[in-house]
Structures are given as structure tokens and as C-alpha cells.
Design a protein around this nucleic acid. Structure first.
Lengths: 209, 209
DNA sequence: TAGATTGTTAATCGATTAACAATC
DNA sequence: TAGATTGTTAATCGATTAACAATC
């Protein structure tokens, strides 16, 4: 794997490649060329080949790519075979929706626990995942060393909660609060899911001008 | 408003400007220069001025921008004052989480109804929003003409449901299914919220290489 | 007025696309 | 072998940044 400095644009396309290759594999497709894949995805063959060349050489001249092999390679680049550990912090409606519906294992994540302050929730299990009290965070993180925290707490406590988790050594945040989080600690990554921004973009596009 | 052809990159930054200006306004800030705003947002003053110039002239030399005025202008560009009507299609965990938690009015949307097939849900109200049977879709849409559908149905029926809604005249889709939707009907807009893609991006960034 | 800051034009940078020699 | 398709280099396109005259 070469990597060097891969641009954000390339990284954000990788999951989409992964998805398409998974679909192709499921449909039983064994081989694919960059031009056919590009046609399906609505991008140029050049872009696919250029993107992949950031990470290595996965094809074969005159043949194209083996679907399952390329899928596995991209999965590896994305880290889906790393068995990352994840906790959900905030088991409100959204946190529970993710626990119940989101296929963490498909992305290579093991969901180990959820945390909340509500006595109605603490002690229960949701889809097999135990809900612990927020006061147990320190003990649990020290013992299980999760890689990622899903932040589904109220906006008002978002930054404070993130700081607390960073102190405990967590470096990856899947942030569903509509707040932009910051940290001066190196190697902390925030991946924001800004619902409001997304809907406003749609609003712009459907507004007649 | 000039508009012409505004790039996707610019459009996706607008909600973020909107958010920052709202915060500033809430904090009581009356005026702001592109350089101070740029510093806060971690982008260049040039970019802000260049972006805004796609839509008109909102500042004043030697002064900068009036925060509340610029906020309102960007809100207008985004269409938040259009009172778009929205329905939620699929009232499972995620649909319910959005109904309960997401502040549709803040984005200028009126949530009029939710639809589901489950007899346990149909007839109930969630946060004041009536849950109707999917069979009532045709009648309801004809009567209320919603602009946007939030798609929170199972993957397996995503495209079929979208097609049905497009037939009924709906042109905006806030798509939470992990499926890429297509349509040959002109002016149909899909705004995808791909949870899996987002988490995989984070996975890439926290994976040591 | 003098200082500050805009809107816009020009320069730079990076990302996408095209072209093609290498080769399966 | 001939045809197909890669990986990579070069060309193009678009987006970001810098510079500055206009002006509040």
C-alpha cells in the first residue's frame, strides 16, 4: 500500500466503491473493468484507476479487476477487517435507532455497550447491547479500550462529553450532534453527520429561483 | 441573486455559514468581517467572499457584514423561508427518531404526516404527527402536495417506494436507506445520508498504516 | 480623512480527465 | 497472437487563494 497523502475526495469515494463491489459480488459478477464500473457509478474510468493507484495495483491488463479481490482490498484499506470497537454514548431515540438498525459488523465494528443517564434505560439491553450508566464510562473504557464513540447526546453536553472521552483515550468520534467539536489532542478524528446541513442542501436544490 | 451555475462545493458550505451566523447572532454579535469569520470556521476570508459573491453583495466596505442580515440572506438562498412541506415515509426506529428529535422547523420544513405499514403504529400520533397507513399515500399527497419525502423504509422497498412517490409528484427525497436511488423524471433530487459511508470514512482515518 | 474591508480579477493549486505505452 | 485494459504521465478543468482597486 503506497498511500503517501491521499486526498479527502478520494477517501470519501472509497466506501462507494466498496458498496458497488459488494453488490456486484452478491450478484455473482466475477470480473469488472474500470470502464464498466465507471458507467454503473456515473464516473469516469480514469477516476477509478487514478483513485485505486493511490493504494497499489489491483488490476490486470487486458482483464480488469477481480470483483471479490478488489472488494476485499478496499475493505482492507478502509479498515473493515480491523474489528474496531465502538460504544454508543447517548441512548435517546437516535442512539437507539442506530443500535437497533445500523449494521455495525458490516463496517467491521463491534458494538460493545451504550451509555446513558436515564434510569429507565440503564441496566437494560437493546438488541443485545447493555446500557450502562454514564458514571461507568471511565471504568468501562479503561477495561475495553473502544476505538470509536458514537455521539448521540444532547447538543448542550456534546463538547463536554467528547472532552471526557478524549481524556479516556478515545480518538474516533461519529458525531450526530449538530455541534462542531474541536480538540487540541493530536490524532483525534471527528466524522460529522450533520442532518440539518444535509436537509438544507436539499432545500436549496428544490427551491425555485 | 445572481446564481448562474453555483458549484456543489459552494452549496454544501452554505448550511455551515448559516449555522455559524446563527450562533454569532445568538451570542449577540452584530457585525463580522470575512477574515474573523474565516478564522472561526477554519477557512480563508477569500473563500467566504468568493462564495457569497455567487449570490449577490451582502457586505459593506470597511465594515464587513451585518450578522443577522447575512444570516437571513443565506437562509433565503437555502429556502428556509419557503415553508416546504415534508412527510416521513417509514416510521421505524430511525423515522421515529427523526420525528421526535429533528427540528424540521429550524430548516423551514413543516412535518405533516408519517406513513407506515405497521398496524401498531398506524392511527397513532408521534410528537403530534399523525401516522397514516401507506395505502393512504395517494390520497394524502394529492391533497397536501408535500415537497419532500424522508425515506426511512427498509432497503428492499426503497426504490419502489421512491418511484411511487415520484409518480405522485414528489421531487425531493431525503434518503436514509443505504441504497442509491435513481429516476429518469427530471428535477427529482435525492439527498443521501449514507451512515455506512460516513462510518467507513472514520474507520479509514483511525486505521494505522 | 484614514483605516478597514469589501467584491472581483488574476494567479495558483489541486483534482479530474485524456492519452498511451506496457502487458496480460 | 490480437484485443483489451491496466497504471501512469500529461493536459485540462475547476476550485481555492492572493492581490488590489473601489469605497464605506
Amino acid at each position: 500500500m503506497k498511500k503517501q497523502n491521499v486526498s479527502d475526495a478520494v477517501i470519501r469515494r472509497l466506501p462507494r466503491y466498496y458498496r458497488y463491489l459488494q453488490d456486484l459480488h452478491l450478484k455473482g459478477t466475477v470480473r469488472i473493468s474500470s470502464s464498466i464500473l465507471g458507467e454503473k457509478m456515473g464516473i469516469t474510468a480514469s477516476q477509478i484507476r487514478q483513485d485505486l493507484s493511490c493504494f497499489g495495483e489491483f488490476g490486470q491488463q487486458g482483464y480488469g479487476y477481480n470483483v471479490e479481490e478488489l472488494r476485499a482490498e478496499i475493505g482492507h484499506i478502509l479498515g473493515v477487517d480491523e474489528s474496531h470497537r465502538v460504544i454508543v454514548v447517548g441512548a435517546g431515540n437516535l442512539g437507539r435507532a442506530l443500535i437497533h438498525n445500523f449494521r455495525f459488523p458490516d463496517a467491521g465494528f463491534l458494538l460493545e455497550a451504550a451509555f446513558d443517564v436515564s434510569p429507565d434505560l440503564v441496566g437494560r439491553e437493546l438488541a443485545g447491547v447493555p446500557v450502562l450508566d454514564m458514571s461507568e464510562l471511565e471504568r468501562f473504557v479503561a477495561a475495553h479500550r473502544p476505538d470509536v464513540a458514537v455521539l448521540t447526546v444532547p447538543q448542550a453536553v456534546a463538547q463536554r462529553t467528547a472532552d471526557r472521552l478524549i481524556d479516556l483515550g478515545i480518538r474516533g468520534f461519529w458525531n450526530f450532534t449538530n455541534v462542531e467539536l474541536t480538540s487540541s489532542v493530536p490524532n483525534v478524528r471527528f466524522e460529522d453527520v450533520h442532518f440539518a446541513d444535509s436537509l438544507l442542501t436539499l432545500s436549496y436544490r428544490i427551491t425555485e429561483r
